Simulated assay, not measured.
Amino acid sequence: MEKKYIFFDIDGTLISHTIRDYISESTILALKKLKENGHFISLATGRAVYLTKEIAKKTGVKSLVCEGGHGIIVDGELKSYEPIDMNIAINILKRCDELGLAWAVSISDNEELVTKNERMNQIISNAKFMRKILVKPDYDYSNETCIRRIIIENNEELYNQIEEIKKIGFMHYAGSLFAFIEPDDKYRGIKKLVEMQGGHEDDIIVFGDGINDLKMFENAKTSVAMGNAIDALKEIATHITEDSDSDGIYNACVRLGLID
């Protein structure tokens, strides 16, 4: 079989959708067989670079598309990263200030967040969100050269008044207290990584389960939705497999003729 370029979402796809951080033995075996058969395998995630290291080590996968398609890692080394467009980010934060929405920003590849609003610190603390937050009353985001993601307090009515949010891509809620605004075009990074490897776009296969997988499913020639995937993803997938907890990845790879 010709070499394929296979990309796996992490949460709910590669990792169990019911057991935290659990990867089934059949999934590990599938990854091993795919590599033995000469296929290129990679992860495709919205996670920050630093949050991919443990899963990369656990799976033995050294190439990743991360940061919602804006980061590319090859052989464990970050080869490419594009932050959020600064003009868009600054406009969003200005509108948040005008509307009285508390916010925080991630400016480095770590768990640290920066805000000038004590209320955002309290919101994140109440949510038991495992991030370190620095409150700087005089913080001026216009002096930054890189903003990776924006977190704002939950107020959907006011969100709709910030048009620039749509220009970044993905907004998802963390419980009921706040929301992330971050890139969501994984396929952008997938296409770039395949080109770097000298591959062809027609040989891309993607696996996923959630809303931030929609763009890669819309663009990839072959797409596999997990049994636990959202309906919108299943509707556009070329294949549907079992749940992540029920040998879904292994079975799909067999049915696609990628492994025996």
Rank of each mutant, 00 (worst) to 15 (best):
L177G: 06
N155F: 11
G208E: 02
M130K: 15
K234L: 03
V254G: 00
I150M: 01
D9M: 02
C96G: 02
L258P: 07
G68D: 10
F170G: 05
D209T: 07
I205M: 04
D97C: 01
S108H: 14
K35C: 04
E156H: 06
L43N: 09
Q122Y: 13
H172E: 14
S106P: 03
V105R: 06
A48N: 11
E2R: 10
E182Q: 11
F7I: 07
I6P: 02
G38W: 10
S142M: 10
G198T: 02
Y250C: 09
N155P: 08
T145M: 07
I259E: 10
T18H: 07
A48E: 09
L193G: 00
S108F: 14
R20E: 12
E54F: 11
P137N: 03
I55F: 06
I133E: 14
I205K: 00
F7A: 09
P183Y: 01
K33H: 14
I151D: 11
P83V: 02
F207P: 06
K215V: 02
D247Y: 13
S26E: 15
F7E: 05
V206H: 05
G100W: 07
R188T: 09
K32M: 14
E157M: 09
N117M: 10
Y141M: 09
N87F: 07
N37T: 08
I124S: 08
Y187R: 00
K116F: 15
Y50V: 12
L134T: 04
I211Q: 15
D11T: 07
D75T: 03
R20A: 12
